[in-house]
Amino acid sequence: MGMADEAVRVRGLCKRYGAVTALDGVDLGIRRGEVFGILGPNGAGKSTTVEILQGHRSRDAGEVTVLGRDPASGGRRWRSRIGIVWQDESAPAELTVRETVRHFARYYPRSRDPEEVVGLVGLEDKAGSRIKALSGGQRRRLDVALGVIGDPELLLLDEPTTGFDPAARRQFWELIRRLADEGTTIVLTTHYLDEAEALSDRLAVIATGKVVAEGAPAELRERHGGRATVHWRETGGGARHQETETPTRTVAELMRRFDGEIPGLRISRPTLEDVYLRLTGQLDEQPGEAAR
């Protein structure tokens, strides 16, 4: 992968807050046009990473290039190519959705059509409402509208769906996919596994300030998931399971022991959640066990 294909390139990024090390040598390479998830428990350094990419936080060491520039000295032209959706948002409460989106459109050299963006985030019905009258989910969608109004090449979202109900999250995912289809590079942090899996082309798992794994969700499962587990019930009723690299062989053996159906037969592979919990050191047991 050449550097020109990279929207974001991070090498050896370090950040300390007093005695606390937030980032301890983070490396990331995010390609143009992909949806990249940054996954990690609270306090792992996700937000710090994104804030450094936005140019809103200084770093102590490391190289950072975002759309070909160092965010620390980005400038207006560079800012106009980046969209930001913050973790905790606030928009002027007394203005209407339409007024706000139209106004923010003026900041950019080549913005999207405000009406179209209001429709894109599904706020057509609320376009004339004051922001203070919106629900939490609607405000979040307004945040996204303000993030994409400048037609950014790169959209940085910090925990965009925290506090959403399930339906709102699905709608939000659709929105992200639509933006990705339009060619926007999207970087999002999340601590929801299903979100990371559903949206990301690739993802990085961060724990205690380090990238502990990086790759496509399926790759991560394969590489870090470990063995499959075969579950069955003995004739007496006792539940049994066996971890194995070769589940087919285990089943073949069971078939020989049982006449006909094997009671309660189930083969489980580690889920992304199992992989994640193990990678982030939040789980010490065997992966197959955790889900049960």
Binding site: H56, R79, E89, P92, Y107, G150
Partner: peptide, 9 residues
Amino acid sequence: VLRRLGGTP
């Protein structure tokens, strides 16, 4: 509100 403005051009 200011931080958000700071994130725009």
